[in-house]
Amino acid sequence: MEITLDSPASAPQPLSPYYSQVARVRHADGSALLYLSGQIAEGATLAEQTRGAFETIAALLKAHGATMADVINIRTYLTDIAALEEYGSVRREFLTGTPPTSMTFEVSRLFRPEALVEIEIVAAVASGG
């Protein structure tokens, strides 16, 4: 097993220098699991922030030979669980196949005061990806 940590130049850069955006765990058969740090995005509304976070996630996955179809787990942190349907409608734009395993939490705040949502992803990549 080989572990690589990075923040690919082809994707939006992290908002802080204190973390890597992707941990790639490559197995002996060439397959890999991608663990993405929680992603937030700028925007005035939850929908704008959700869309921006998923666009960053898509770019990070692409940099590692994966797509949204490779997502196997998603964890979402919302500052208002009452906005779950608004979040879900944007999420369905990006995750169009069989839904991955999922957990959604309401939190009192995120590390940026203006952030309304943070999304964390795990994806599985077949050998060669």
Rank of each mutant, 00 (worst) to 15 (best):
Ser102Met: 11
Asn73Ile: 04
Val107Ile: 05
Met103Ile: 06
Tyr87Pro: 12
Phe111Tyr: 11
Ala69Trp: 03
Gln49Cys: 03
Gln39Pro: 03
Val90Ser: 02
Asp6Gln: 05
Met68Leu: 15
Arg26Trp: 04
Thr98Gln: 13
Ala53Trp: 01
Ala58Leu: 00
Arg91Lys: 09
Asp29Lys: 13
Ala82Cys: 12
Glu118His: 01
Pro8Ile: 10
Leu60Phe: 06
Ala69Thr: 07
Gly43Asn: 02
Leu60Tyr: 06
Arg24Ala: 14
Thr56Asp: 00
Ser37Cys: 13
Thr45Tyr: 11
Ser16Gly: 11
Ile74Leu: 15
Thr67Lys: 10
Gln13Glu: 02
Arg51Lys: 14
Glu85Asp: 06
Leu110Arg: 12
Phe94Cys: 04
Met68Cys: 02
Gln13Ala: 03
Thr79His: 13
Leu33Thr: 14
Asp29Glu: 09
Ile40Cys: 02
Glu55Gly: 02
Tyr18Lys: 12
Leu33Gln: 13
Gly97Met: 01
Thr56His: 07
Ile72Glu: 13
Thr76Trp: 05
Glu93Phe: 07
Met68Pro: 07
Pro100Ile: 13
Thr76Asp: 05
Thr50Pro: 14
Asp80Ala: 15
Ala63Ser: 12
Ala63His: 10
Ala83Leu: 15
Leu34Lys: 08
Arg91Trp: 01
Ile74Arg: 14
Glu42Asp: 05
Ala23Met: 15
Leu5Gly: 07
Ala53Tyr: 03
His64Lys: 07
Arg112Val: 05
Ala63Gln: 13
Phe105Asp: 02
Val25Gly: 06
Ser31His: 09
Arg51Met: 09
Gln13Asp: 03
Ser31Asp: 12
Ile74Ala: 13
Thr56Gln: 03
Val22Leu: 00
Leu84Lys: 06
Arg26Ala: 13
Ile3Asn: 06
Ala28Tyr: 06
Leu46Ser: 14
Glu106Pro: 15
Pro14Glu: 00
Thr67Gly: 14
Ala115Trp: 15
Thr79Ile: 15
Glu86Trp: 10
Tyr19Cys: 02
Val90Cys: 03
Ile119Ser: 01
Tyr87Phe: 15
Asp29Arg: 11
Ala9Gln: 03
Thr4Phe: 05
Gly43Trp: 05
Val90Arg: 00
Ala115Val: 09
Ile119Tyr: 05
Pro14Cys: 02
Ile3Met: 14
Thr104Tyr: 05
Ile74Gly: 08
Phe105Leu: 08
Val90Met: 00
Thr4Lys: 13
Val25Lys: 10
Pro17Arg: 02
Gly88Met: 01
Val117Gly: 09
Phe94Trp: 04
Glu85Met: 05
Pro100His: 11
Val25Ala: 12
Ala59Gly: 08
Glu118Cys: 09
Pro100Gln: 11
Asn73Met: 10
Ser102Asn: 04
Gly38Asn: 00
Arg24Pro: 10
Ala28Asn: 08
